[in-house]
């Protein structure tokens, strides 16, 4: 019982990370058909805002010293701000560009952010003790689980419910959903395009910041490439979930997390190193059988 629960928790916490990442990508894809490759670099930047720029090996903690009730909103706000800034400065000029162009532009932007961080902080991973109380283990149903894993799962579920009710209950949410369904039509019907898109970027940035907080406290490290892996998995989850479908992205994120953890558990030692090959093989299989994704968002077929 205990060990099964442990695996379930492992899968759920990894899946939560991917799901949060996939949501961030799907939100932006929904409103402007942009596959935002800069998302991973926004995640990394959100961790680095806690440190004072320096190329020394020892991190100079700056905003990271704030008490948690200030630190969490601060990081979320920085994520949102960076993301909105990227829309205002860069992506706004690409409204009518084709998806490939936007994708490469977002990649170039991520490249700029990454090398900017590298110049300010050097490539050496910096250690930070972020929210250290979260590293303590707790006992749930016979499984000893780090508190952080529990919080990750709870936060993800909280974010999902919060986002759902936000999209369902508020006017802004309604506009955003309308824009995701059919942007041109929504615009004709009076949806304020720039506001909706900026809102989507702000939400996406805040989600990136949430991932940054989780990754930062889990790994204790700020590293310029730390967002890349989550971003790739999130990107895959977004596609498997059905481009533009928020619920699909979340489900696929959890699914990918579960596949990765289960592969690690069931593969024999010699094959474990090949885990990723099996995971990506599974991705191809899912795509072959459900090319439009698990849940298909209306109006997103064949745009890329």
């Amino acid at each position: 019982m205990g060990s099964v629960m442990q695996v379930v928790f492992d899968a759920a916490s990894l899946g939560s990370l991917y799901a949060l990442g996939a949501l961030g990508i799907a939100l932006i894809f929904g409103v402007m058909r942009l596959v935002n490759f800069a998302h991973g670099d926004v995640i990394a930047a959100c961790v680095f805002v806690l440190l004072w720029p320096s190329v020394d090996a020892v991190a100079i903690v700056f905003a990271g010293n704030l008490p948690w009730f200030l630190l969490v909103p601060f990081v979320l706000a920085m994520g949102a701000a960076l993301s909105v800034a990227s829309e205002v400065v860069v992506f706004r000029r690409f409204r009518n560009a084709n998806p490939a162009t936007m994708m490469i532009a977002s990649f170039a932007l991520g490249f700029v952010i990454r090398y900017f961080l590298l110049m300010l902080y050097s490539s050496r991973p910096k250690s930070i003790s972020l929210l250290p109380t979260l590293s303590q283990p707790v006992e749930i149903m016979g499984a000893r689980i780090p508190l952080l894993q529990v919080i990750t799962i709870v936060v993800t579920i909280g974010v999902l419910f919060g986002l759902t009710s936000f999209l369902r209950r508020t006017r802004f949410g309604l506009e955003m959903r309308a824009a995701a369904e059919n942007f041109t039509m929504a615009r004709v019907l009076g949806v304020r395009a720039n506001r909706v898109i900026m809102g989507a970027f702000a939400l996406s940035g805040a989600l990136a910041a949430a991932i940054a907080l989780i990754l930062g406290s889990q790994t204790g490290t700020a590293n310029i490439v730390m967002g890349a892996n989550v971003m790739l998995m999130a990107f895959i989850a977004t596609v498997i979930g059905g481009m533009g479908s928020l619920a699909g992205a979340v489900i696929a994120g959890f699914l990918l997390g579960a596949i990765a953890v289960v592969m690690q558990v069931i593969l024999p030692p010699d094959a474990r190193a090949f885990r990723d090959a099996f995971v990506y093989g599974a991705v191809i299989l899912v795509l072959i059988f459900r090319p439009q994704g698990l849940l298909t968002a209306r109006g997103t077929k064949e745009r890329v």
Partner: peptide, 21 residues
């Protein structure tokens, strides 16, 4: 016992579960 992971893995929870087992 023995196990492997990848440097960039966001979480090594599954590997830890094996040790705890």
């Amino acid at each position: 016992g023995e196990d492997t992971f990848l440097n960039e893995d966001a979480s090594i929870a599954a590997q830890i579960t094996r040790i705890k087992g």
